[in-house]
C-alpha cells in the first residue's frame, strides 16, 4: 500500500518522498515543501481518494531528531488508510496547512500548534485552541519547562502537599 503510493508520489512529485535506507511499510516519510499539493492530489485522485483525515499528531522525537507531524488518512471509498510523516526542523518548524483540503485539519492543526509551536503555513486562523491565548511555551515539547507562575498564581513544583 504505502510502497505503491510512495512510488506514485515520487513519480508525480519528484523529491517529495524522503529516501530512506529501509523503505518503511507502514508510513510514508514526506518532505514538507509540496505537502499541500500532495494532499490535494491524494484526496481527489480516484485511485486513492483519501477523503477523511483521521488525525494529526505532533511528535517531539527528542533533541537530535527534531519534531514531526503525522497524518493518519483514511479513504471512505476504498477503505484503505495511510500514515504520512513530515519531519521538521526544531528551531523553525513550518509545514503547509491542509486545513482547506480537509476542514477537520483546522482544529487539529491549531492543536498541534498549541502544543508544539509548529506553524502551519496558510492556515487562516492559527491560534491556540486548548490553552489560554497568553500561554507561553509549547507544552508537549520534551524540553518544555513549566512556568513558575501564571498570572501571579504559583505553579506547584513540590508535589508532596497535594499528591
Amino acid at each position: 500500500m504505502s510502497k505503491n503510493l510512495s512510488e506514485v508520489l515520487l513519480e508525480k512529485f519528484p523529491g517529495s518522498v524522503i529516501e530512506m535506507e529501509e523503505i518503511p511499510t507502514d508510513h510514508i516519510p514526506l518532505n514538507g515543501d509540496k505537502w499541500f499539493e500532495i494532499a490535494l492530489f491524494i484526496r481527489d485522485e480516484p485511485d486513492w481518494k483519501f477523503d477523511s483525515l483521521q488525525c494529526i499528531t505532533g511528535v517531539d522525537l527528542g533533541e537530535e531528531n527534531g519534531l514531526e507531524v503525522r497524518y493518519n488518512l483514511h479513504s471512505m471509498v476504498h477503505s484503505h488508510k495511510i500514515e504520512i510523516r513530515i519531519p521538521l526542523n526544531r528551531d523553525k518548524p513550518v509545514v503547509p496547512s491542509v486545513e482547506q483540503v480537509w476542514r477537520v485539519g483546522d482544529w487539529f492543526e491549531r492543536e498541534v500548534y498549541d502544543m508544539y509551536g509548529i506553524t502551519f503555513k496558510g492556515h487562516r486562523d492559527l491560534r491556540r485552541i486548548l490553552l489560554p491565548d497568553d500561554w507561553e511555551g509549547w507544552p508537549l515539547r520534551k524540553d518544555y519547562e513549566e512556568p513558575a507562575t501564571y498570572h501571579g498564581i504559583a505553579v506547584p513544583k513540590e508535589k508532596e502537599g497535594w499528591e
Binding site: Q54, C55, T57, G58, V59, D60, R70, N72, L140
Partner: peptide, 20 residues
C-alpha cells in the same frame, strides 16, 4: 471514531499518546 496514537520508545511510559 476514538483514535489513540501511541508512540513507544521502549520505556515503561509512553513517549506520546494522542487521543483523537
Amino acid at each position: 471514531d476514538l483514535g489513540f496514537y501511541i508512540i513507544s520508545d521502549g520505556s515503561p511510559s509512553p513517549s506520546r499518546v494522542k487521543l483523537r
